[in-house]
Write a protein that binds this DNA or RNA. Structure first.
Lengths: 340, 340
DNA sequence: TTGTAAGCGTTATCAC
DNA sequence: GTGATAACGCTTACAA
């Protein structure tokens, strides 16, 4: 036994247990048609030997690898890390491993690249991060190939077996409501990049809060960013040039909110006394800048954990996993009533 | 041809090319003993068919998977992401994929866990991140199992085929020299966590700069942190309570430097007028806080890229890859001459 | 230089 | 219930 590699194989188990390979295989795969005696006996031999099925051989025979892919095209490091953490928590102790696959959503060959990747590696399933998760062709591709998938997003993108989403729109409405409660009326918006669903949802939440409060703002109070710090600085520069200028700004993510803060500081505008700011994501930077940033916390780790469970669940368990997650406002030091 | 899965196999290629499987295999594996005619012919059939060898079957036959593992136990998300980026850049277009494997270096079963992981998955190679990269037993384990490895670190941890390192010590000396040039004499140090090689190297660099300038400081000017923002705040609180207090503080990473800044602000100490601060890493937060943080930039993406190339290089190429990388001081707004 | 046969360690088929 | 036997798609002897 235990040739070359040093690890016991199914043959060793079969020989020692005095049964056939197939019977061992049945034990491993929890086949129902097996006498309890044989099962028990084989299980004893397995644990005695410390036998673990060889993933490569299984992958070949099953035409399916026990790998979960994370497909993303994402600018935000912290978000990707959180997703990885969540997935890995769910995968811990299972036979699954995590393979990371960044892609370029702008590339003309993107779909083909993903197809090749999935077909060759025979992934068990993939988690799709925004913004690529918003690509319906990609989801269809996974489906066609027979690769399970779960899409993460800011709104309902798919049926509950194939998606986990947060309620960005409502969460932003709550954040802006909070500004309004504090007495703000001139509220600026730093938008996310065009084409991102999250940007759309957050904008919608912003506008719903304003219209519910019967506040009408000129279009100039909306500046577009692209989720980077620098774009936040530039957007804030435009907003703060306005006369009268906004007394509060909601930025569609923390990076841009940090940029707004930066721009305010360069002009000698005190935050929160002269300007209130709210961000979105609650990345570490939010708590670490000065003043600490009031922001919307997105339960991204839980969402990723849930996504991985949906992927690896067999059959009915899946139904148990939630698909909608609630974001909440974290109140810190960057909001105060307006001065005037 | 192309049964079940829809993808062409080596048999399809062999049949269509009118040669044996083995000949096709030779073409795939670049065997030198092959007539140019046959090679050319088979290559044509391969590309005509769009044939790509099945990784699962290769893995089984070769007893080796074309997967590169990233093993880490790291608190810093940005660092892990940068490493992933570097590795993935090197792996792009190759047959290799990246598998991420976080571990708990404190766990009693850590070595066994890693062993099981490597033995079962038959990884081609692994990149070890600090601080686990400093564990010699882990390196030995990889070696024993026959899994290639490259360790990333703050100093020479291994021979050049198995390591990429940065010159943390020198880089910190240069940073502290800069503070001294500006006129600072009372310089505080926020240390990294005990047991981290990087913390040790950075401390050494700090002390070398001081002793070269004939500056002697009380031990109270050194406060220990653990690389988190909060530990930076606490360490700074101790340092800023001192009488006379330091006019400058070097923190062993940016997170803690941000914490120092935070603590200073809470006390109404102006940075850089009343206190200069230098960090280490040049993570995004460094440029995004106010004032922008002067810090040491560590070429981590290049290092990771190089690590992956060392792993996947066959034979001699490896020698070409550098093992030592230089960190450089990035001067921003958090340093000024002392007031007195 | 090329081909044949025998693995690699599993699962699927189909008898018994 | 259980076990031969043939896949799965590739590589490594060993021949030719």
């Amino acid at each position: 036994m235990m040739r070359k590699t040093g690890l016991p194989t199914i043959n060793d188990v079969a020989r020692i247990a005095g049964v056939s390979k197939k019977t061992v295989s049945r034990v491993i795969n929890r086949s129902p048609l097996l006498s309890d005696d044989t099962r028990k006996h084989v299980e004893d031999v397995i644990s005695g030997l410390g036998y673990v099925p060889n993933p490569q051989a299984r992958a070949l025979a099953l035409r399916r690898n026990f790998l979960i892919g994370l497909i993303h095209d994402n600018p935000n490091a912290q978000m990707v890390m959180n997703v990885q953490q969540g997935i890995l928590e769910s995968l811990h102790g299972t036979e699954f491993e995590l393979v990371v696959r960044p892609i370029d959503r702008g590339s003309a060959t993107m779909l083909d690249d993903v197809r090749n990747f999935l077909e060759r590696q025979r992934l068990f399933g993939v988690v799709l991060l925004p913004p690529v998760s918003e690509n319906d062709q990609l989801a269809k591709l996974c489906n066609d190939i027979g690769c399970r998938y779960v899409r993460m997003g800011s709104a309902e993108l798919d049926d509950s077996a194939h998606m986990v989403a947060s309620n960005d729109c409502e969460a932003v409405t709550a954040a802006v409501d909070y500004l309004i409660e504090q007495g703000h009326r001139r509220i600026g918006l730093v938008l996310g990049p065009h084409g991102f669903r999250s940007a759309r949802e957050r904008r919608q939440g912003f506008e719903q809060a304003l219209s519910a409060a019967k506040i009408t703002l000129p279009r100039s109070m909306i500046a577009e960013g692209n989720y980077t710090f620098e774009s936040g600085v530039m957007a804030a520069d435009r907003l703060l040039d306005l006369m009268p200028r906004p007394s509060a700004i909601f930025a569609c993510n923390d990076e841009m909110a940090a940029g707004v803060l930066h721009a305010a500081r360069q002009r000698g505008i005190d935050v929160p006394r002269d300007l209130s700011i709210i961000g979105f994501d609650d990345t570490p930077i939010a708590a670490h800048i000065w003043p600490p940033l009031t922001t919307v916390r997105w339960p991204i780790i839980s969402m990723a954990r849930s996504a991985a469970l949906k992927l690896t669940a067999d059959g009915d368990e899946m139904v148990e996993e939630p698909s909608m997650f609630r974001s909440t406002l974290i109140r810190r030091g960057s909001v105060a009533p307006p001065r005037d």
